[in-house]
Amino acid sequence: MKTKAASLPYAVWTFIFIVVPLAMVAYFAFIDEAGHFTLENVSSVGQYTPVLARSIWLAAIATVICLVIAYPLSYLLSRMHVGRQKVFLMLVMLPMWMNFLLRTYAWMTLLERNGLINRFFALFGLGPFEMINTQGAVVLGMVYNYLPFMILPLYSIMVKIDNRTIEAAQDLGANSYHVFSKVVLPLSVPGITTGITMVFVPAVSTFIISRMLGGGGNLLIGDLIDLQFLGNAYNPNLGAAISLVLMVLILLCMSIMNQFDNDEGMEGALL
């Protein structure tokens, strides 16, 4: 009884700030300007398939890059002395203390035609290179801003892997490859799935990064939703329909990742 009473504020909070907004998005997605039921908004989302595909593609690339960078970094961090771990964790989190918009503005200054990177290359007679307003700049912005979301879950899982488990595998004749593939990797799967979800979800729906680093030629689904609510093409019903399709897509991806995580957990239990 006490548990139910304690969970009541969280249930109220969830209902007001999660269930109600989602219900409103679904409601406006299936009505027209006059308030009548229609499927036209949802059917119109199909014409923006290239934008959605571009968003998924760039978010997937950024997620893979984050995983490739974060995995060895998290493992090295988890094997450090506790004091060093705290210092390096603070360094990982330090950029997050700065405003998201300011961090992106900083990359604009670095990547623009007369930016610091092109000035550095000019010292060697190279460039200037067109780095801003490209898909590469968008991916770079995603990786920079969302990399901590991959590092933290991986670290939190890897730090729980006992060194004695690794030493036992080595004592039984396992080389470095087998220690990684048979011990470290299976035990770190929950961190991988959590990190992928935490990076892919905000990356696929971002709009500030693509607007500031990608220019008008690299429109993503987040930019499209923003334009429907705040742009000249004001159409909140279509914006709600696009948001609803994006939410369904994200939930589908999360369910696939959770299923993969469960399968790995069952396999580990059988082993």
Score class of each variant (00 low, 15 high):
Lys2Cys: 15
Lys2Phe: 15
Ser7Met: 15
Leu8Asn: 10
Ala11Glu: 08
Thr14Trp: 09
Phe17His: 05
Val20Thr: 09
Pro21Cys: 07
Ala23Cys: 09
Ala23Ile: 01
Val25Cys: 02
Tyr27Leu: 13
Tyr27Gln: 07
Tyr27Cys: 02
Ala29His: 03
Phe30Ile: 13
Ile31Gln: 12
Ala34Phe: 15
Phe37Asn: 03
Thr38Arg: 14
Ser43Met: 13
Gly46Pro: 09
Tyr48Asp: 09
Tyr48Ser: 07
Pro50Cys: 04
Val51Ser: 08
Val51Cys: 02
Arg54Cys: 07
Arg54Asn: 12
Trp57Val: 10
Trp57Ser: 13
Ala60Glu: 01
Leu67Trp: 08
Ile69Tyr: 02
Ile69Thr: 03
Ala70Pro: 04
Ala70Phe: 07
Pro72Trp: 13
Ser74Lys: 06
Leu76Asn: 14
Ser78Cys: 10
His81Trp: 08
Val82Lys: 14
Arg84Leu: 15
Arg84Ala: 15
Val87Trp: 09
Phe88Gln: 01
Leu89His: 01
Leu91Lys: 07
Asn99Tyr: 06
Leu116Ala: 11
Phe121Pro: 06
Phe121Gln: 07
Gly125Arg: 02
Leu126Asn: 11
Leu126Met: 12
Pro128Leu: 11
Phe129Asn: 06
Asn133Ile: 03
Asn133Thr: 10
Thr134Leu: 05
Val138Arg: 01
Leu140Asn: 12
Met142Glu: 02
Val143Thr: 04
Asn145Met: 14
Tyr146Met: 13
Leu147Cys: 10
Phe149Tyr: 07
Phe149Arg: 05
Pro153Lys: 10
Tyr155Leu: 04
Tyr155Gly: 08
Tyr155Lys: 00
Tyr155Pro: 04
Ser156Asp: 04
Ser156Cys: 05
Asn163Met: 10
Thr165Pro: 06
Gly173Thr: 06
Ala174Cys: 08
Ala174Glu: 03
Tyr177Asn: 14
Val179Glu: 08
Val183Tyr: 09
Val184Glu: 14
Leu185Cys: 11
Pro186Ala: 08
Leu187Glu: 05
Pro190Phe: 08
Gly191Thr: 02
Ile192Trp: 01
Thr193Phe: 00
Thr193Tyr: 03
Thr194Val: 11
Thr194Arg: 04
Thr197Asn: 07
Met198Glu: 00
Val199Phe: 05
Val201Glu: 03
Ala203Leu: 07
Ser205Gly: 14
Ser205Phe: 04
Ile208Arg: 09
Ser210Arg: 00
Arg211Gln: 15
Gly214Gln: 11
Leu220Trp: 11
Ile221Trp: 03
Ile221Thr: 05
Gly222Met: 04
Leu224Ala: 08
Gln228Phe: 12
Gln228Ala: 13
Leu230Ala: 14
Asn237His: 12
Leu238Ser: 00
Gly239Met: 00
Ser243Phe: 00
Val245Cys: 07
Val245Lys: 02
Ser255Val: 14
Phe260Lys: 02
Phe260Asp: 01
Asn262Val: 15
Asn262Ile: 10
Ala269Gln: 09
Ala269Phe: 09
Leu271Tyr: 15
